[in-house]
Computed example of a mutant assay.
Amino acid sequence: MSVAEHRSAALAVDGLSVRYGALKALDDVSWSVATGEILGIIGPNGAGKSSCFAAVTNSVVHGGETYLLGQPVAGVPTQELAVKGLRRTFQQNSFFGELTVMENAVSVLARDHSTAFSASLLLPWREAATRRAATAAARRLLDRFGIAALHYDKRPGEIPYGIQRLLSVALAYGNGPRVLLLDEPAAGIGGNDMRHLARILLDLRTAGLALVVIEHHMDLIMTVADRIVVIEQGRHLAEGPPAAIQADPTVLEAYLGRTQ
């Protein structure tokens, strides 16, 4: 990957390698995603897709380099990467189950809407104003992802599963990252929920977000992705626009053909 690609990409990974003991989960994998682009990552179960996200966010020991907005971020703690604009979801829903939907949304915006302890004690009116601002921002966040007000006072486990998936994406998005990594956001959903998710992803792309989406639902990823990277047994197998990937004989042999 060239220096120019590093500098122009919102996120670029070069020569990513991950080992779990004797198992080589990733072997010299490289890809990049630009601002306002959706990159899809597909491959069979166990191909190393989720290991890509774990390595990129420095959650596992790995080889290779990662560049966020042109800057190397090897060794930067995961939580600091989130502050710098790189965030991710997981295959399982991620939220605080004991809090309401609204409280979950407020919690992810706390960094931008908080009051110093001394001000909370001495200037209670400022604390109240901060809480109102945080609630208003949380409403805007939930509304952006199509989560209706009737769900705000419910716990996540009490709302439909499709809305839970959207909530997990909304909470990862928070106050607006530069790059969002989505690990199987459509897992367990279909129909209207799938179409709603597709609209949300396309809206985020239009707004200038860089998205990397791991997905097994081929109809979704072929619809929303600008480019697709195929990983097979931990290695980069193919890359290109959806139409080219669908017609690539090596992909059909290694992956897509198995689902037909």
Score class of each variant (00 low, 15 high):
1 M>D: 07
4 A>P: 01
7 R>S: 11
9 A>M: 03
10 A>M: 14
13 V>K: 02
16 L>V: 11
16 L>G: 04
35 T>G: 01
39 L>E: 05
41 I>H: 01
44 P>N: 07
44 P>E: 14
45 N>W: 15
45 N>D: 09
47 A>D: 02
47 A>C: 03
50 S>V: 05
50 S>T: 15
51 S>R: 10
53 F>H: 05
62 H>D: 00
63 G>C: 05
70 G>A: 01
70 G>L: 07
70 G>V: 07
73 V>Q: 09
73 V>A: 00
78 T>Q: 13
89 T>W: 08
90 F>K: 08
92 Q>V: 11
99 L>Y: 11
100 T>A: 00
100 T>Y: 08
105 A>H: 07
110 A>I: 14
110 A>K: 14
118 S>V: 15
122 L>T: 15
123 L>C: 03
124 P>T: 09
129 A>Y: 07
130 T>Y: 06
133 A>F: 01
136 A>H: 14
137 A>W: 02
138 A>M: 09
138 A>D: 07
140 R>C: 00
147 I>Y: 10
151 H>D: 09
156 P>K: 08
159 I>S: 00
159 I>T: 01
160 P>S: 04
164 Q>M: 03
164 Q>G: 01
164 Q>I: 05
166 L>Y: 04
170 A>I: 13
171 L>M: 02
184 E>C: 03
186 A>T: 09
187 A>H: 06
187 A>P: 11
188 G>I: 11
191 G>W: 09
193 D>R: 03
199 R>K: 10
201 L>T: 04
202 L>T: 12
204 L>N: 04
205 R>N: 01
207 A>S: 15
208 G>C: 06
209 L>F: 14
209 L>V: 10
211 L>P: 03
217 H>I: 06
222 M>H: 08
222 M>S: 01
225 A>S: 15
232 E>W: 13
232 E>F: 06
232 E>N: 14
234 G>I: 13
239 E>P: 06
243 A>M: 09
244 A>Y: 05
247 A>F: 02
248 D>R: 12
252 L>K: 12
253 E>V: 03
256 L>E: 02
260 Q>R: 14
